[in-house]
């Protein structure tokens, strides 16, 4: 018996969401009295440090280039069988979601995706209806698979042990998908992984006014986001769009500036831990979903807030 964690990389580096998956796998392994094994595929910078997060073993299949869910699922299933995994953990990310269903079929394993609780026996919770409901699932198969909700299980350093990665033996099938180009924004935390998000909407009146949003994000170390109309009229890039049709996020702090809070927007952000809404319209529906609200002119409030956070940070 063991817990196997698929520890994913993006552009060759192990992702924060992968460390969350390891912390999840470690905690379940502790409860079950089994070992926690990390598996990396392809280039995986940071694999040498995984011992800190409690893994007993790090297995690597490095001779894979480019993401193809069919190849990954095949390798992960082989390794899961070799190590006798009874639980396989994935991040609920673009790659984790693409692989987990395939592995579930290969291993005849029950899958619950975007889990929000630790697997307890055969029981695990997940959110439904964009956060408007919760389901408690039972998984009836011997091998179980979960993908874990982002920003829900913080990576925890639990050990001073260093675990040297070992090569796993697996047959590597030929990829049918040819990856031509992978481009990611450099130097910022991607939205699905961001702890702090500053988001703005049509109330900004034009793309030329975004400097103050970026200033606030910079002082917080936050990632910037935007509402759908703003992405649709190309004031901001498509990848910044949060909401039902854009990226669904779950940060600890979400600051919404000049966004009225349409239900489709809320569906993508209402699982944020703390929501701050700044809007000149006291009737904006977003206030009903907020923890803190300021009714005021954002062109006045946002620079003041940036200054106040700056002085707070200087004194703390």
């Amino acid at each position: 018996m063991s817990v196997l964690v698929f520890t994913e990389s993006l552009t060759g580096k192990i992702k924060k969401s992968a460390l969350e998956a390891i912390s999840y796998g470690y905690q379940v392994a502790q409860q079950q009295g089994t070992s926690c094994i990390a598996l990396t595929i392809g280039q995986a910078e940071g694999a040498d440090d995984l011992g800190k997060y409690g893994v007993d073993k790090v297995l690597q299949v490095s001779q894979v280039n480019g993401f193809d869910s069919q190849v990954y699922a095949n390798i992960i299933s082989q390794v899961a069988q070799q190590v006798g995994a009874t639980l396989v953990v994935f991040s609920h990310s673009s790659s984790g979601k693409s692989i987990a269903g395939r592995v579930a079929v290969r291993l005849d394993a029950g899958l619950v995706s975007a889990a929000t609780t630790l697997l307890n026996g055969d029981t695990v919770n997940k959110n439904l209806f964009s956060g408007k409901g919760i389901a408690t699932y039972s998984i009836s198969t011997a091998v179980k698979i979960v993908t874990i909700s982002a920003n829900t299980f913080p990576p925890k350093e639990v050990s001073g042990n260093s675990v040297a990665p070992e090569a796993a033996s697996a047959n590597i099938p030929t990829a049918k998908i040819r990856v031509k180009e992978t481009t990611t924004v450099e130097g910022i935390v991607p939205l699905p992984e961001a702890d702090l998000v500053v988001s703005a909407g049509r109330g900004m009146k034009g793309p030329e006014n975004w400097g103050m949003v970026e200033d606030l994000a910079a002082i917080l170390g936050a990632t910037t986001a935007c509402s759908r109309p703003v992405a649709d009229i190309h004031w901001r890039p498509h990848h910044e769009h949060v909401g039902q049709t854009g990226v669904a996020i779950k940060p600890t702090l979400y600051i919404a500036i000049g966004i009225s809070g349409a239900i489709q927007h809320l569906a993508g952000v209402n699982q944020s831990k703390t929501i701050v809404v700044i809007n000149k319209d006291p009737e904006a529906p977003f206030f009903k979903a907020a923890d803190y609200g300021i009714v005021g002119d954002l062109f006045d409030v946002v620079p003041k807030l940036t200054a106040a956070i700056k002085s707070f940070k200087a004194n703390n």
Binding site: A104, L111, T123, K132, T136, Y137, S138, I139, D291, K304
Partner: peptide, 21 residues
């Protein structure tokens, strides 16, 4: 391979705290 045992609603938010601009 899986079944939903029960559903529940998320905890209700405490309500918004308004702050002067």
């Amino acid at each position: 391979t899986v079944a939903i045992k029960t559903y529940s609603l998320p905890p209700v938010k405490a309500g918004v705290k308004m702050i002067s601009p």
